[in-house]
Amino acid sequence: MVTIIDYGTGNLRSVTNALARLGADYILTADPEAIRQAERVLLPGVGEAATAMRMLREKGLADTLRNLTCPVLGICLGMQLLCTHSEEGDTDCLGIFPNRVRRFFSGSAGGGLKVPHVGWNSIHSLKSPLYHHIAEGEYVYYVHSYAAEINACTAAATDYGGWFSGSLHQDNFYGCQFHPEKSGAAGGRILANFLSL
């Protein structure tokens, strides 16, 4: 059973569809008690970091999430919220991963990087059980304007005008900056690996 944190930001449909395709049961909840009892937690996120953090705090979920001991997977903004700080809205985040989240530098039109980073990019230096049977250089689908820096928690690195953490891992916490639920067969495999942790 996967407990999906439903804290009122964005659309959870693509995540629930992906879990359904894998035959996994799930519940959507923002109830701290239900989350404390969870077997496996998924923190999705589409939207803006400061707003999302405010929603988590208002619902009393910040400490609940920090104290979880079950496997936790943050996807996209959900992963960024597990970091220490995000430039998006200059907000402190949950501080589980010691990473800071910064905006891609787009530079001047034409010569610079296109932001958001949209599309399929490759993941390298894979190191976490999420990447069991995933090949080095596999392509996954990204849509984001902010990214976590590389550090010891980096579980997959992607190059977009410089290397950033495509994935993070520390203890029972996992994060994917990309969208496994939209990353075809490889993404399905990554989610299935999370389900079998």
Partner: peptide
């Protein structure tokens, strides 16, 4: 489509 297709 959203239920069955796993790419954007």
């Amino acid at each position: 489509i959203a239920r069955e297709i796993d790419i954007p």
